[in-house]
Design a protein around this nucleic acid. Structure first.
Length: 255
DNA sequence: ATGACCCCCCAGGGGGGA
């Protein structure tokens, strides 16, 4: 079975692509980020007609997350418990015994900004919550748009991006601390070719020049590592006529 | 080439993304 994450950059715009994508990629579960829809406008009927259960947590204009699954998700959680947050960034549920957590991590804007301070606090709250989730659910996947490029290998121009948002030591330390909970970056469980990204700027002909970052990740718990068969970025979806700036990322499990 | 986008808001430009 496959699990996947995709920052769709407006589900209102991308719904037809999502429905096409699900036909071509009948994944067991998919988390979405940047749906940018309040819950009353969420296209639940269309997604259910495509054969998926769905739970969601949105807001106007910004952020918004959803969890689609072939079987219903149970124990659904919206946002990080105990962390007061005006922004809709997390949705979690248990699907076929696997705890699936989808996150739209804060961007952070710039290392000297208030938004960076928020990003750091959010990451700390997420880590402490996920620590408990792992104790309760040994089979766990934490996936989404992390807005962190974990390593210089994940950046098309690491010199130009050194110290910039997504690439600061503080963000990378947070990523390592998530791994320290007992999670593994599914993509790095395998030898990978260089220059694999999950996001390409709309500007500067970035996709055509393959100038991007790998900031969308699937972290799996140790109990799941033996069943991970592959982890791939679905780059062709970024070539669609009216694409999101992110490509989906998929993990394949032997179950 | 010192360029180059897209989506939201909601009606002319501004905020945000990464």
């Amino acid at each position: 079975m496959q699990l996947a994450t995709w920052n769709v950059n407006s589900l209102g715009v991308r719904l037809p692509q999502l429905l096409d994508w699900l036909k071509a990629h009948p994944v067991e579960a998919l988390v979405l980020q940047e749906t940018k829809l309040t819950d009353d406008k969420f296209p639940q009927a269309e997604i259910e007609a495509a054969g998926y259960h769905v739970v969601f947590h949105g807001q106007k204009t910004y952020n918004g997350v959803a969890l689609l699954s072939r079987s219903p998700a149970t124990d659904v959680v919206r946002n990080i418990p105990g962390f007061a947050d005006q922004q809709a960034r997390v949705i979690a549920g248990t699907v076929n015994g696997i705890r699936v957590i989808g996150g739209y991590f804060p961007n952070g804007q710039a290392p000297d900004s208030d938004k960076f301070v928020y990003k750091m606090g959010w990451l700390t709250a997420l880590r402490e919550w996920v620590r408990g989730q792992l104790a309760a659910h040994p089979e766990l996947v934490l996936m989404g748009d992390y807005n962190i490029a974990p390593d210089d290998r994940d950046v098309y121009d690491p010199v130009a991006w050194a110290g910039q948002i997504h690439c600061t030591d503080e963000e990378r330390t947070h990523f390592q601390q998530l791994l320290g909970l007992g999670l593994s970056d599914a993509f790095r469980l395998f030898d990978q070719p260089p220059k694999i990204w999950s996001w390409w700027d709309y500007r500067n002909l970035a996709f055509r020049k393959n100038q991007g970052l790998r900031i969308d990740h699937i972290l799996v718990s140790q109990a799941l590592v033996p069943s991970v068969q592959s982890c791939e970025v679905d780059k062709p979806t970024r070539k669609n006529e009216r694409p999101s700036d992110h490509a989906p990322v998929l993990v394949t499990l032997s179950r």
